[in-house]
Amino acid sequence: MRRRDFFKTTVAAGAALSLNFDGLQAALSGEAVAVEAAPDLVAVMGGEPEAMLDKALEALGGIGKYIKKGQKIVIKPNIGWDRTPELAGNTNPLLIKALVKRCLAAGASKVTVFDHTCDDWLKCYKSSGIEAAAKEAGAVVVPGNDEKYYKSVTIPGGVKIKEAKIHEALLEADAWINVPILKNHGGAKFSCAMKNLMGVVWDRRVFHSNDLQQCIADICTLQKKPALNIVDAYRMMHQNGPQGKSAADVATIKSLLASPDIVAIDTAALGLFNQVKKLDMAAVGHIGKGEALKLGSTNLDQLNIKRIRI
């Protein structure tokens, strides 16, 4: 009996070891490949939102690099306006839906979606298609329409903004993903990843009256920075932003950018924007100010950029 037991144990242990070893080796080699090639920024063009997202995440080394099992994740799209997806005022709902699914598949314990909208929030959540899409994918969609959802935090890195009320969902999250839509903007000239952070803040009037461009950069110094920025440029509003008037304001350029570097991704997005409409970097003050606050780099030449065409 004892000997038999001994053999059994040995065999079992051996099998387990060899299995583990195989797995470990596979994981190690996979990691090695990913580390070697992990780009600072991925740009994808020519596909549908979900397909482009998968390409980008794959190139970045998988979503598991940015979120961990059991974490509470916030996805912050732009849901600012009472506009349908075709008018490109809000982030593409298909992208949000796919991203929620990827997060849950990666083991996120909870995925929360919200925005502090400009138009009536119920209308925005509905017209944008984001509420329905996110819920379908399993996310919790929370309101951002009332001051009580926002908690005051200090912004030590800010030049003009030293304190702001931030949505509690974001403050309570373990990690968050910033998912703006790229578009023209009457006030900030250009709205993308950095500008999207204004949607986590309650009082935006202060931003407008205290040097908007600096305030946008300031809010990006928020201690809880996005783990990843994913720019939706499937449809791009190139004029009359941020609301847009009609479909004539929209160019369908079927693109997507992803990067953890918020300044780099906005710099790249500005390049993409310039493919349709001329817009000078100097006019979009917040990008340069973000670099000055060491939030990232505008020097794309020194970054490892992966460009993918589908």
Partner: peptide
């Protein structure tokens, strides 16, 4: 400084 909230 930039603003443009009205136009937005």
């Amino acid at each position: 400084t930039d603003c443009g909230a009205c136009s937005e």
